[in-house]
C-alpha cells in the first residue's frame, strides 16, 4: 500500500481518532498533519509493517502527550476554553445537557487519562493493547482508566442530580 492509498482510505478515520484523543479539533488537525508528514517521509518502512495504521495511531498519541508535556513544562498552560471545546448547546432536554457535561468533564481530564479512555472506549482496545501503545504496564493502564472513570463518576453525580432536578 502506498502512502497515497493509505491516506485516501484512512485519513478521515485518523482525523476523527486524533480529535477524540486530543478533544480539540484544531489540535487534532495540527497533530495529524505533523504525524503524517513524518510518516510520509518514512513510508517505505512504515508501509511494510504488519499494521501501519496502528503505528501511525501510536505516533498520534505520542505526539499529543509529548506536545502537552512540552507546553506544560515551558509555559503556564492557559486554562482551556471549555466553551470552545464543548460549546454550550441549547437545552433540548436532559440528554443534551448531560452529554455536554460529559464532554466538558472529559476535556478537564489529565491528557494521559483522556488518551486512555479514547483508546479504551473509542478504539475498543484491551488493557494490554493500550499498554503497548503507551509503553507502560497493563496494570498502569487499569489504574489510569480507573482514575479517569472515578473522576468522571464523581463529577457527574452532582451534575446528574441537577439535570434530573431540572427535568
Amino acid at each position: 500500500m502506498t502512502f497515497e492509498e493509505f491516506t485516501a482510505a484512512r485519513l478521515g478515520a485518523l482525523v476523527r481518532y486524533a480529535t477524540v484523543v486530543t478533544w480539540d479539533p484544531d489540535l487534532a488537525q495540527d497533530i495529524t498533519q505533523n504525524v503524517l508528514i513524518r510518516a510520509q517521509a518514512r513510508w517505505p518502512r512504515i508501509g511494510r509493517l504488519d499494521a501501519p495504521e496502528q503505528y501511525v495511531k501510536r505516533m498520534i498519541v505520542n505526539e499529543f502527550l509529548s506536545w502537552r508535556r512540552r507546553v506544560a513544562r515551558l509555559v503556564p498552560l492557559p486554562r482551556e476554553s471549555l466553551d470552545r471545546i464543548a460549546p454550550p448547546a441549547p437545552d433540548h432536554g436532559g440528554e443534551v445537557v448531560r452529554r455536554d457535561a460529559v464532554a466538558r468533564l472529559i476535556a478537564a481530564l489529565p491528557p494521559r487519562q483522556r488518551a486512555v479512555i479514547a483508546l479504551r472506549f473509542y478504539e475498543d482496545l484491551s488493557h494490554e493493547q493500550i499498554a503497548e501503545v503507551l509503553g507502560c504496564r497493563a496494570v498502569t493502564v487499569r489504574t489510569t482508566l480507573s482514575r479517569a472513570l472515578a473522576n468522571l463518576r464523581t463529577a457527574l453525580s452532582p451534575t446528574k442530580t441537577l439535570v434530573e432536578e431540572s427535568l
Binding site: 491516506t7 485519513l11 478521515g12 485518523l14 482525523v15 476523527r16 481518532y17 486524533a18 480529535t19 477524540v20 478533544w23 479539533p25 484544531d26 487534532a28 488537525q29 495529524t32 498533519q33 503524517l36 508528514i37 510520509q40 448531560r98 452529554r99 460529559v102 464532554a103 472529559i106 479512555i117 479514547a118 472506549f121 473509542y122 472513570l149 468522571l152 463518576r153 457527574l156
Partner: peptide
C-alpha cells in the same frame, strides 16, 4: 455506575468525533 459512565463516555466520544476537522486541508498539504 461505571457501565453508565462508560456509555456516556462512548456517546460523548462519538459526538466529538463528528466534530473532527475537514481532512481535505491535510490531504492538500500532504
Amino acid at each position: 455506575m461505571n457501565t453508565e459512565v462508560e456509555e456516556l463516555v462512548r456517546e460523548a466520544q462519538l459526538h466529538m468525533a463528528d466534530r473532527a476537522p475537514d481532512p481535505e486541508p491535510i490531504r492538500a498539504a500532504l
